[in-house]
Design a protein around this nucleic acid. Structure first.
Length: 495
RNA sequence: GCCCCCAUCGUCUAGUGGACUAGGACGCGGCCCUUUCAAGGCCAAAACCGGGGUUCGAAUCCCCGUGGGGGCACCA
């Protein structure tokens, strides 16, 4: 499919950190831009200065970078349509608001907040939808200008055409029609001279040549307002694409702020991109996960790389229904993408987790253990709990575990003793050297392999669950192996 | 309360009037493999929200219910 280049934007508000909902919106925008040879633009919507979070903008960008969603134009890289931070475009917005006033499509409103609040309370009491009553709608422009010039505080409201319906076309949902009477004359410029989202976003989208607006469906209710603004200016409309929201795993509603904040501590999951790395997830896995919540390539593909998504993406295959998130699925994709990594790459990726754990593991050492753990870990951080013992000076475990089911301390000790003798008699501890005689020993002692090897496993790794025993022994220093076996012997003697 | 959107296995989804005995994936259960744990292989259970239309024929189109979701700020 050949499409003309799309200019799309991801426009987060720096009032919070990048979460999977935002990331998925960014992803779809990115995919369309890359597929069509267009541009992916990052624009920061910080017109509400009161709600700013200090490091939110930087964190939003870090999140996108971590996912590999690099923008062509944005605050840091610039571009032909800058600035890309809305608070630096206030003059542009103000001029456009004034232009609408001059065109008779907007008006100055002098209503005090108190009056508005009273009006609102009254309407709510009557169980009516709170709406501006048009109090200042018909003040003659000359009079309004005079009052404004005299220093009276005012806002600019958009004059919504009355007595008609407005229909806007959404690519996924078709025509969305509302009666204009359900819209009120909304404010487009605040009394402090700053634009509100509705005006700022439309002006900037137009000026930046945005061809497709792909955003969350929570914008659907204000879609008519946006179309009305565009039409008032006589501008064309972009393709509107409203994505469905993510629901909590139960499918019952969106995640609350509290649930979102406690997720990580309570169950080791998070919806924030900046937590994903710490939790051991690959960006590839996160991308795969969010891409398929609301989009599908076909009836069977479920593992995709970013490149494959770019090639296969299409707006038509977006699903408008809300989707419950599933962390089980994230874990699954995580495992899939870890297994798909070349060993050298996996060694590189797990290195920081060993560093973090205070273990001195260089990449070449890690590369040797990767074959033992690659299919056994679902997240990168699990590499430490699985293979940390390779790099620890001492290992701690409960000696009770040295006695397998069906055995007692004496028989376990005897088995361990025989194993030490046998291993000590071998020319080396390579896997092919150790396994056959050890199996023979097990059968001679009338033990199941699981029993005998279980004793050694705990003795050598300190873990009930570990990489395969003989491969592990082969990688460990000879001295370490025998020291740990000797230590286990002392435990079993009850020392 | 009002407005808008959505509706296929528990979950993510395929399905755009006949190819549907409704496909795939996660999860769940069983079996195989097996030195633990995984991975892998095989098998199973599991869905078209309800009611009316339209049509020779409806998961697919229309209407009404119901359920779910979103929105109703000098927030975005």
């Amino acid at each position: 499919m050949t499409l003309s280049p799309a200019r799309v934007r991801f426009a987060p508000s720096p009032t919070g950190y990048l979460h999977i909902g935002g990331a998925r919106t960014a992803l779809y925008n990115y995919l369309l831009a890359k597929q069509t040879g267009g541009q992916f633009i990052l624009r920061i919507e910080d017109t509400d200065q009161a709600r700013l979070v200090a490091d939110a903008m930087e964190e939003q960008m870090n999140g996108l970078r971590w996912l590999g969603l690099h923008w062509d134009e944005g605050p840091d890289v610039g571009g032909p349509c800058g600035p890309y931070i809305q608070s630096q475009r206030t003059e542009i917005h103000r001029a456009h608001a004034e232009q609408l006033v001059a065109m008779g499509k907007a008006y100055y409103c002098f209503c005090a907040k108190e009056r508005l609040e009273a009006l609102r309370a009254e309407q709510l009491a009557l169980k009516r939808q709170p709406r501006y009553d048009g109090h200042c709608r018909n003040i003659p422009l000359a009079e309004a200008k005079a009052r404004k010039a005299a220093g009276e505080s005012c806002v600019i409201r958009f004059k919504v055409p009355t007595e008609v319906k407005t229909t806007v076309h959404d690519v996924l949902r078709g025509g969305i029609t509302v009666d204009n009477s359900t819209l009120d004359d909304f404010i487009i410029l605040k009394s402090d001279g700053l634009s509100l989202y509705h005006l700022a976003a439309m002006v900037d989208d137009h000026l930046m040549g945005i061809t497709h607006v792909i955003r969350s469906s929570e914008w659907i209710p204000s879609l008519p307002k946006h179309a009305l603004i565009l039409r008032a200016f006589g501008w064309g409309e972009p393709q509107w694409v409203h994505l469905s929201v993510f629901l909590k795993p139960s499918g019952k509603g969106k995640m609350s702020k509290r649930e979102t904040a406690n997720l990580k501590a309570e169950e080791g999951h998070s919806i924030f991109v900046r937590d994903m790395s710490e939790l051991g997830y690959l960006p590839e896995a996160v991308l795969n996960w969010i891409a398929l919540m609301g989009w599908s390539l076909d009836d069977k593909t479920d593992v995709l790389t970013l490149d494959e998504m770019i090639r296969g993406f299409s707006i038509e295959r977006l699903n408008p229904a809300p989707a419950a998130i599933s962390f089980d699925k994230l874990d699954h994709y995580s495992g899939v993408h870890i297994r798909a990594l070349p060993p050298e790459e996996l060694a590189k990726r797990i290195k920081p987790y060993f560093d973090q754990a205070g273990l001195n593991a260089d990449e070449s050492a890690l590369l040797r253990i990767v074959p033992l753990i690659q299919v056994r870990i679902a997240t990168l951080d699990e590499s430490v709990s699985m293979a940390g013992f390779f790099f620890r000076d001492r290992i701690d475990y409960d000696p009770a575990g040295l006695i397998p089911k069906g055995m007692d301390a004496a028989s376990a000790l005897a088995a361990l003793h025989r194993s030490i003798d046998l291993l000590g008699s071998l020319p080396d501890l390579a896997h092919p050297t150790t396994e056959p005689p050890m199996r023979a020993l097990a059968s001679e002692l009338k033990l199941k392999p699981a029993q005998l090897f279980g004793i050694l496993r705990l003795a050598i790794t300190g873990q009930q669950i570990s990489p395969p025993l003989f491969e592990t022994i082969a990688l460990l220093d000879r001295e370490t192996v025998f020291a740990r076996l000797a230590k286990a012997e002392t435990y079993l003697r009850g020392e």
